[in-house]
Design a protein around this nucleic acid. Structure first.
Lengths: 145, 145
DNA sequence: CCGTTATTTGGAATTGACCAAAATAGGGTG
DNA sequence: CACCCTATTTTGGTCAATTCCAAATAACGG
């Protein structure tokens, strides 16, 4: 699978006249390996072990690039640092208001209405996602009301 | 209506033993006047004309306070500055991926499923909102595919 | 193997958000 | 009404995330 993904990335890059660099390949791999929602800094650390001289700037721009290529997704999360994920299929998120943990939420929510309404408002929607705010299991257990 | 709102704010403040200050009243008024999603800086500018010596710090803390009192809502934006809005009823948002504009989206989306699923995952949800990503009318018109 | 040019680097600058201490002002009291 | 106590505001600074810029590096077509 990872081979295919690399191949896809390479293709997309070449199709755009962009270069295939080890940084780009490694960052994509790291993002996938993280299997969750990674901040640019987490990716930076992961990749850093394999490519010590890499710069944060490269991580930023590459993650942005991956998002633009459709190989990653920028997760719109409240507060805290921007995170990225390798999942590009539609799914939702829940975020802990206390510790900032971000988790996938697999639930089928009919967002068609939302998309439709946005179009009616002159918007050109590309995606719609639900973000559930609340307390994660750990924080809920700690918090004494 | 604004009188009532001021009254409500005053009540809430007194009930908590907090003080009613001109800054707080003006900031709430500015937030309502903005009728959209205002960044703390926008509020700072709005209020600044009426109260030249005000500081950003006060704007921050007051907006936070209003959120805690339930008179405002904090809307964290992915790659941008946190914004605040006077609407406290549940509603959704659409955000322009190009210019960062944030708009209300009035659509009835059944998020109950999402809340339920999050509970099943051990989460203690407090709210759920849909964020539609895409291009706002202006940016969509400009962008030439 | 070389040259062109996209990328990466490294460092500095910008920005939003927040902390702490001193100055100010709200509001109850005598 | 004047005064005091303490909540707020101000002021000034810190911290972290992100972006800008110019120089160094490396991809890849010829």
């Amino acid at each position: 699978m990872s081979v295919d993904d690399e191949a896809e990335l390479k293709e997309l890059l070449r199709a755009r006249g962009m270069r295939v660099t080890s940084q780009r390949l490694l960052i994509q791999r790291a993002l996938r390996a993280h299997a969750g929602h990674a901040s640019s800094e987490q990716i930076y650390e992961l990749v850093g072990s394999a490519l010590p001289g890499i710069s944060q700037q490269t991580v930023y721009s590459t993650l942005t690039l991956l998002s633009e290529l459709g190989l990653a997704r920028r997760v719109p999360v409240p507060g805290g640092t921007t995170r990225f994920e390798a999942r590009v299929d539609d799914h939702h998120h829940m975020m802990c208001e206390r510790c900032g943990a971000l988790e996938d939420l697999d639930a089928r929510v009919p967002v068609a209405k939302a998309l439709e309404a946005s179009r009616a408002a002159g918007f050109a929607p590309s995606s719609a996602a639900v973000t559930v705010l609340g307390l994660c299991a750990q924080c809920a257990a700690v918090k004494a009301p």
